[in-house]
Design a protein around this nucleic acid. Sequence first.
DNA 1: TTCAATAAGTGATTTAGTCACTTCCTGTGA
DNA 2: TCACAGGAAGTGACTAAATCACTTATTGAA
Lengths: 211, 211
Amino acid sequence: MIEAAGLEPGDALASSRELAKRFEVTTPTIREALRRLEATDVIRFRHGSGTYVSGGVNRRLLVNPHVSESRSESVLELLDARIVLEPPVAAAAAAARTDDDLTALTLSADNSLKPQYADERPELHFHVALAGASGNLLLRETIEALLQVRARDQIEIRHRYTDRDRDHADHLRIVEAVRDGDPDAAATLTREHLLAIREAIATTLGPEQAR
Amino acid sequence: MIEAAGLEPGDALASSRELAKRFEVTTPTIREALRRLEATDVIRFRHGSGTYVSGGVNRRLLVNPHVSESRSESVLELLDARIVLEPPVAAAAAAARTDDDLTALTLSADNSLKPQYADERPELHFHVALAGASGNLLLRETIEALLQVRARDQIEIRHRYTDRDRDHADHLRIVEAVRDGDPDAAATLTREHLLAIREAIATTLGPEQAR
DNA sequence: TTCAATAAGTGATTTAGTCACTTCCTGTGA
DNA sequence: TCACAGGAAGTGACTAAATCACTTATTGAA
């Protein structure tokens, strides 16, 4: 029904009572269906207000909200994965970027200095914007999902361990490489950037917490 | 509760009536909670039998089951993404593989010839096993999730467009490179392998369906 | 014009029951 | 002794009719 009506994030759904009538089932049954959609962030409930379409409708990859962080591994595992995956994505971006991508990239690079609301506005997250410049939406969604893994830790890292000015400088150099259409430089700079962050965390955490 | 009890895939949960009693809510409410877990494949219902823990408990990345394929882009987009991401994963595997990884890899390579039940047994999918050999679980999960995107199309492709013998030969050569600990060769062979598949699909589909 | 009270609409949950399906056990007959 | 039809118990699926909790927009008095 969301698809057929072409609903976008922010749009309101009909009330559960009305949906129950429309689909000829009772409200508890409708609720079960809506809860499933809620689990993948396709819709969100706002008590007393209504149910609204959310960002999940056009997000194919997502993090499992039901896997606790205690069950998963260290944050270093995540950075190791990013170090493998993101450099080639940066290279692809350097090869395919449009002018629009460049302006978006510059915008998100500037955002690295300011307090992060990158969680509600993923397009402002530099590494997401970088993946977006590859022109491949699925690539962008993959990086976006990856950045949601251990989200709490990543916010903590941004606030405490990373050197914001150095981050910004790194980002600017990556933007340059992408602007110049230099895939190798973009890949190398991205790798070094992530390696530096990994190093900062590894030494701060100490080897005993590195797992 | 699943965590605390250390339940693994296949284990049964208590009945919804019992859960309702234990959490002091009614069955419809319990059902809503269970439906959310169902949406991310943490549990599965079997009518008349019970509800069971499923593979999702230890899967951090997953495909959104509520995004229709019509809303998403072409299958070529997916292959383009894989061509960017998988070669460096193969390189990481060549650098880090253990002997156990090698046997698992050989096993899954042989599986490329037989009819695919790779959907229920992801560890038998060659590209998943390859990512697993990197030693980074998150990397493996990322590739695993990516291979679930447009799953129907991918099965179709395996059955109709790919040359099974050539696939097998490609896989064996990648295994060799991984065995020899040659990251560059592993990356190059993986890239060529995926490019060949992409080419086969692109020409078969014809440019008009390529989007 | 401002702002507190109100009413209507919405999600959240309950209660009590019925239907549908699966599983396993048991008694019967070969 | 064994195979198997039949039944009972347990489970998920769903209904029905309410009530409670919360939000929002409207209304009317200060």
